[in-house]
Design a protein around this nucleic acid. Sequence first.
DNA 1: TGAGAATACGAGCAACAACTCGTATTCGCA
DNA 2: TGCGAATACGAGTTGTTGCTCGTATTCTCA
Lengths: 205, 205
Amino acid sequence: MESEEARPRRRQARGERRMSEILDAAAAVFAEQGYEKTTTNAIAAAAGISPGSLYQFFRSKEAVAQALADRFTAQMRDAHGEAFAPADLAARDLDDLIDRVVDPLVAFNVANPGFKALFARPDMPPGLATAAGPIQSALLGRVEAILTVRAPRLSSSERTRSARVLVQIFQAMTPVVVAAAEEEREAEVRELKKVLRGYLAPLDG
Amino acid sequence: MESEEARPRRRQARGERRMSEILDAAAAVFAEQGYEKTTTNAIAAAAGISPGSLYQFFRSKEAVAQALADRFTAQMRDAHGEAFAPADLAARDLDDLIDRVVDPLVAFNVANPGFKALFARPDMPPGLATAAGPIQSALLGRVEAILTVRAPRLSSSERTRSARVLVQIFQAMTPVVVAAAEEEREAEVRELKKVLRGYLAPLDG
DNA sequence: TGAGAATACGAGCAACAACTCGTATTCGCA
DNA sequence: TGCGAATACGAGTTGTTGCTCGTATTCTCA
């Protein structure tokens, strides 16, 4: 069989820039329309180029989404790093812990509204779920690690399940936070934290 | 302008049955493929009829979805009735209250896996969100009513927000419950209840 | 029982989306 | 400065989808 990334074709700086512009445009259109409804022509138009030019850089619509997913994944990894960076995280006060984990993740989602549009929607090719897999696992792993310290009485499977629930809560409420008007956002974040706290408190200590 | 439901055309019993069969098929296909990806021909095939016959009963793909939404709405109304029926709901023990509200709603969603596929997906025509609107408002209203009794100290706007959060939690976790294997489902429901309880407890009393 | 309405069919139409291709322009570099 | 590669174009090809239409069959009821 052939390699997937057979010959990544030599590119000029101009081309790299174009690719980035196309991904910017794609993020915006995907965010607004969803994956299925966005046309490659619409992405090209938003990027200010012709349909043919888009295919100079990406083999297919899915390839565009894939590249965008990769880019988001990298940024998300940074956001996770920041969120889980403090070494003494697990030893902190519960409210403080939640603040320090949630705030950077919320900030990332607010800054990248296209992210959820790509990953949280059920209407995309399975390949993209695959792309989101590693980052999702990493997030779960980090939460589990914290639970291992904060809730030592949980069995391994309970811990896994609880981590999943926590991540699920976060992901369910994030769209509302992102969509909220500037002046409402803080209140929404407070609710999100209340929910996490309410679930975590009984497990804690 | 013409009326939307101009002449609802006289139907034979056979026709009524066909319509119902088409909706059954549509529910199955929508549930599996999502709204955008399901083709009207696929619905017709699943119903064992020709594409033309489908259009004898429904003017468009959206009309099929609309009719299906109406049918779900009616069933959902019943489920809500059951969930919120006991007159002394608001006066019960918190765990008991949660059980009595959550269990029937979960049962409904498990019995109708197509429901979420239609309403919880972001890829459908705005008309359907409209169809879901009344039932959603009713649910929010019921939850608010309970909060009025259980958490009298909340301001009106806080109450509204809290109700929204509760409904949101439920809707976010329901897909996991529905998708879970039979033997895992109870555990998932327990987690759902834990989350609700954790959020409600501080508001209570 | 027979006429008209309802139901059923399925090939095919119009619209649209992903993608191609021949050609023209711009860039990197010797 | 000039040549090959990269970039850019956009009309057109191919395939699919929602939906139509002419026609055939079945049902209802006087």
